[in-house]
Design a protein around this nucleic acid. Structure first.
Length: 266
DNA sequence: GCGGTATGCCTAA
DNA sequence: TAGGCCTACCGCG
């Protein structure tokens, strides 16, 4: 699940569940050193922030935990009975009524203000924070011959987009992933940003990636979990036209496209 | 049980 | 560019 929408959704949910409370922080697995957060009765959680795919828990006195889910990280929220943590639970945040477990993150660490600033300095604008295309983004597109499919995964240019949204946004705009960024018009660049913002926001709301309008289903040979929710990502046939979905490797990730809907122009 | 794969990203060479 | 790292799941034998 972890693209930008997952992180923003987690920030909302975790803030609602735990902000303003004294939270007990632990690492059942032992691989997250949280001794600096050890307090009798817990440590006060002041707020939770999402930036692109990065999540920050800000506790009293500025104590800050940075989480990046990577490919495998997952949160589990326990509202009722609290099960014993599994041996892979990196972090458990326990409040009054709710406990949250984190498994498999790429990063789960206490960060200094300097480290946090450095992390934020590395990532570009986030469409969920800024729904209108920043000038810097449009200028970047105009200046780069890099394929647009590569630019979209560059977190320093636009943060929060992952492999699913890359495939879907390009399909919706009928753009081949290998299209040079510089060949896009300013208008298309603006639409691209707006569409990313809209789809990420929908992902936050629906708690999963959905890029289709209705529930029309053309083929029955697709992974059930995503049936009807996407046009090309991970599919065998294009949901729009039924043509075989093509795959190519871009940024060391599989890019999915429909050669019929997304011809390479020029 | 094993190997491949996945919505990510960093580092060394 | 390759390899490493994190975990869960699926298909295969």
């Amino acid at each position: 699940m972890p693209e930008g929408h997952t992180i923003h959704r987690a920030a909302l949910d975790h803030a609602r569940a735990l902000v303003g409370q004294r939270v007990t922080v632990s690492s059942p697995q032992g691989r997250f050193d949280c001794t600096a957060l050890a307090r009798k009765g817990g440590v006060l959680l002041e707020h939770v922030e999402a930036h692109g795919k990065h999540l920050f828990y800000v506790f009293e006195r500025g104590l800050t935990v940075h989480v990046h889910l990577g490919l495998f990280g997952r949160f589990t929220v326990h509202a009722d009975a609290l099960p014993a943590p599994s041996s892979s639970t990196r972090m458990r945040l326990k409040g009054k009524a709710v406990a949250i477990d984190l498994v498999g993150p790429t990063a789960c660490e206490l960060v200094t203000p300097e480290k946090k600033a450095a992390l934020l300095g590395r990532i570009g604008p986030d469409p969920l924070q800024q729904p209108k295309a920043p000038k810097a983004f449009l200028d970047h597109l105009a200046a780069q011959k890099t394929p647009i499919g590569a630019v979209l995964l560059d977190q320093s240019v636009i943060s929060g987009v992952g492999n699913v949204y890359r495939a879907e946004v390009l399909h919706l705009l009928k753009l081949h992933p290998m299209t040079p960024a510089s060949s896009l018009t300013r208008k298309t660049g603006t639409e691209l940003w707006r569409l990313v913002a809209q789809l990420l926001q929908r992902g936050v709301t629906e708690k999963r990636i959905v890029t289709t309008q209705g529930t029309k289903i053309r083929a029955r040979t697709e992974p059930v979990s995503r049936e009807g929710a996407v046009h090309v990502y991970g599919r065998n046939a294009c949901l729009t036209c039924g043509a075989p979905v093509e795959r190519l490797v871009l940024n060391a990730r599989t890019a999915y496209l429909c050669g019929v809907c997304q011809p390479l122009l020029g």
